[in-house]
Design a protein around this nucleic acid. Structure first.
Length: 217
DNA sequence: ATATCGATTATCT
DNA sequence: GATAATCGATATG
């Protein structure tokens, strides 16, 4: 049995804006199993969302929005369904989608995807060669990796409308339902680290982190 | 399998 | 001036 799945419906439907106009916890949980797509000319990239984290806004000390509405974080305070892209550790971009109604901060961080379409292009964008399952798992497993695979940068994508197919970067729904959703601790934070706001598809090999593929039992 | 560390820069104190 | 919603490489058990 293969690691690779096919998309269930070649014409996924974009998620509507009201989907994102809610608490980031609900949005995060319901984003699992949905599909991130990049369209550019003839090229299509598609990958299933298997790991996300909720960031709650100004009251969440771990959230970038806790610093207030600044030039960096303004998308988080704007209307729902838009891309918030930030640069971190001098190396990596990370993708979020804004949540909550206009004026209220909140977002969901995309942490890992299961690649479906356009794997060759993703490998090229990641500057790696895929020879086996081990390499495949490095393609889109981790927030920095998935951003690189999709060519996501702040200059290019911050503020992009993720509910519009025409925007070229969007979130769609095919005929797939995620099962086995598990809440765990968020990764890489020091403040509010005890909140279980990371959501994963249990057992999915593309989930990032120490126990990614080796659910040793 | 876990631990530690360097890279490299935007942002905030 | 310090820190960060990370990754990849290297070291050690």
């Amino acid at each position: 049995m293969s690691l690779l799945q096919a998309i269930r419906n070649p014409n996924p439907q974009p998620l509507p804006r009201p989907f994102f106009a809610r608490n980031p916890r609900r949005v995060a949980r319901e984003l699992l199993g949905k599909v991130l797509l990049r369209d550019a000319g003839n090229l299509r990239l598609a990958a299933r969302i298997v790991e996300v984290e909720a960031y709650l806004g100004q009251n969440d000390p771990a959230a970038h929005a806790a610093a207030g509405n600044t030039a960096r974080t303004s998308v988080l305070f704007g209307p729902p369904g838009y891309a918030y892209v930030y640069f971190i550790y001098g190396n990596h971009y990370c993708l979020n989608v804004s949540c909550e109604p206009d004026g209220q901060a909140g977002g969901v961080l995309f942490r890992a995807l299961e690649p479906l379409t356009g794997l060759e292009h993703m490998a090229h964008a990641r500057d790696i060669e895929v020879h086996g399952p081990k390499d495949l798992l490095k393609l889109t497993s981790g927030p920095g990796r998935l951003a690189e695979a999709f060519g996501i940068t702040r200059a290019r994508d911050n503020g992009r409308d993720l509910t519009s197919e025409a925007s070229g970067l969007w979130i769609g729904e095919d005929d797939y339902r995620a099962t086995g959703i598990q809440a765990t601790l968020r990764v890489g934070i020091t403040k509010a680290a005890e909140l279980p706001l990371r959501y994963v598809v249990r057992g999915n090999p593309f989930v990032s982190g120490p126990r990614a593929g080796a659910n040793s039992r």
